[in-house]
Simulated scan of single mutants.
Amino acid sequence: MLKKFVLLVIVLCAIAAGGFVYVKNSVETFITQPLNIEQPELVTVQRGNSLNTIIGKFVTNQWIKPTDFEPLIRRFHPELTKIKVGTFELRPGMSFEQAISEIIHGQEYQLAITFIEGSTFKEWRQQFTTAEHLKHATEEMTEAEIAKALGIEHEKLEGLFLAETYHYSVGDSDLDILKRANSKLEKILNASWEQKQEKLPLNNQYEALILASIIEKETSVPSERERVASVFVNRLNKGMRLQTDPTVIYGMGDRYDGNIRKKDLRERTPYNTYVINGLPPTPIAMPGKASIMAAVNPEDSNYLYFVASGTGGHVFSKNLRDHNRAVQQYLKQLRSRK
């Protein structure tokens, strides 16, 4: 009788051991299965999501095959339950276990949007509409409403954001990026204003920003910025009109077709510096740090004019006679290229 009992116990233990091995192997097969994806995919883990929630997402997206042993995964692999909130990138070739490890230990997926120095707020808004995984919080807002939401005192936002590359996470909004861009611009503007030259014809930081935006649009040659700034500062000091084409173009708005005609130079808009005195009322673009620094620290020069050289830079002149010669030389180069 005792022998039969012992034999029964041995059989039951063998069955139990076999069952345990079967279940464990099934769990291992499940977690080591490769993801059924052919290109990188994003998965977002929200607050309150569990491992079972993530498994459900993967199964729904057909990235993995389901298993009847899902409730036992956390028993065999409790380390896979420590998932964190965020958006993560899954790559082809990953197993389910590697995907969960990425969610636990990996860096949250970052996207990026790049704004070019000299771009306008209108162009920024257009870029926002095509940015991936970005909430368009400002899409239906007016410029004044955006300014209010950001706590900016100026209703026109041109020039008030620093143009550079901004990284963001899935779920961030365009308003979040604008807030960061304005904060960076303010820091640079404040620091530059503290280091400004004395006796500049600029009454405040905003006027420095306006001048910086004109410098940004007038030259892309780094070595010229301070000299271009000196021309405008010299003209302001002498009471001369700035007569800069980028301000005319900005005042024309959508009517600008690539050409400025004589009638455009005579049209009285708030931005036409051929007919108004001093600076235009607002910046005309988003200036970079170098242009802001140039605006408050211009070169010490007697230049009053400049024109394109035809070779990528500009020719600077101290009087109208030399300037007219430089203009004729530029026009001659243009004609020779036709």
Rank of each mutant, 00 (worst) to 15 (best):
S309T: 09
F69C: 02
S50T: 15
A131L: 08
G93E: 09
L2H: 06
A99N: 05
D322G: 10
E164H: 01
K187T: 12
G18M: 09
L2C: 03
E132F: 06
K196Q: 15
V21H: 05
G312N: 08
A181P: 06
T142H: 12
T60M: 09
A290T: 06
I73R: 00
S223A: 14
I31P: 02
P71E: 07
K179G: 08
E164L: 01
T282V: 12
L178E: 01
L8P: 04
G56F: 08
V27P: 11
L334R: 10
N203L: 02
T142R: 11
L178A: 07
Q110S: 03
L80G: 02
E186Y: 05
F76N: 03
S230T: 14
N277A: 14
G56M: 06
E28W: 03
N36L: 12
R335W: 04
Y303P: 04
I54D: 01
D174P: 05
Q33H: 04
I284F: 07
M252Q: 10
F88N: 05
K318V: 07
L35M: 05
L72H: 00
K122A: 15
V233Y: 10
A131S: 14
E216T: 00
S220M: 11
Y303L: 04
A137G: 00
A144D: 14
Q205S: 12
F232M: 14
R75W: 15
K57P: 03
K57M: 13
K184D: 15
N190K: 14
I37S: 04
A294W: 03
V43E: 13
A16K: 08
R266F: 12
Q62T: 10
F88K: 03
L8V: 04
P280I: 12
A290L: 15
L134M: 11
Q205Y: 09
H154F: 10
L134W: 11
I276L: 06
L7I: 09
E143T: 07
A212M: 12
T282M: 06
E194C: 00
F115G: 07
F58W: 12
G258D: 07
L111T: 02
S213Q: 11
P92N: 09
T67G: 01
E207V: 13
I10D: 05
G106K: 01
I54S: 03
Q333H: 12
G19P: 11
N49F: 13
T53D: 15
P283Q: 09
L185V: 00
K156I: 15
H133G: 03
R255A: 14
K187Q: 14
V85K: 00
Y256G: 13
K217C: 08
V45H: 01
K65V: 11
L162H: 05
K179Y: 06
R91G: 00
T269C: 13
L175Q: 04
Y330I: 12
L12D: 09
Y271A: 04
E140L: 12
I55K: 00
G171C: 06
L211W: 08
V231T: 05
I116A: 07
A147L: 11
F306Y: 12
Y109D: 01
E89W: 02
V6S: 13
V221Q: 09
I10K: 06
I15D: 02
R91H: 11
N49V: 01
Q328P: 07
N49M: 13
A149Q: 08
T53M: 07
T282C: 09
L80A: 05
F121Q: 06
V21A: 04
R261D: 07
N272V: 14
A16F: 14
